[in-house]
Amino acid sequence: MVDLPKQPGLPDNVFMTRLDAAASWARSNSLWPMPFATACCGIELMATASSRFDLARFGAEVMRFSPRQCDLMIVAGRVVMKMLPVLQRIWLQMPEPKWCISMGACACSGGVFDTYAVVQGVDRFIPVDLYVPGCPPRPEQLIAALIEMQDKIMKTGTFQGSEFSGRTEATGPIPLELEEIRRSREAKLVDGLDIFQPPKL
């Protein structure tokens, strides 16, 4: 919270701050996560929320499974070709302001699954604010990420959400690597097979 200098004549129980700071303070301490848990990281997310680690201490225990009620998406686990359109739709359904944590190696970069079906990092297709490494990350690490997220919201958050407007490009690496293009050209095309076209959103 930014504490502005005290104005003469105000009573003791009134203090001055900026609207941006007050809004960010409130938002950062009551994050409602949307657990987009697909795989193993989801179990660690469960562990973080349950008895021993208790995410409630950081004001983020209200897991809501409807995207309309959430402001923090935690992508936990690998996202595959069939799931990505679902992820994008859920992201679009969340109301502003919203943030996204990419939890675990698979969500960040594809991890050990460098295969035909796994999306190599969700940040190529949706915006990501924070990356949590690990396979899967320990609950302590997720808690650290949450504190970091709160810090980020406090520092950059605005009442209007105007901090997001500058981010006009995808955060991840360029969707097609050179090697991938070369391989796709070299690969022997079986008769009658063409490259898969996903359904449009």
Binding site: T38, R78, V80, K82, M83, V86, F113, T115, Y116, A117
Partner: peptide, 11 residues
């Protein structure tokens, strides 16, 4: 199903 198919057997 198949929303988590990641190609284990190919790997």
């Amino acid at each position: 199903i198949g929303y988590l198919h990641s190609g284990f057997e190919k790997l």
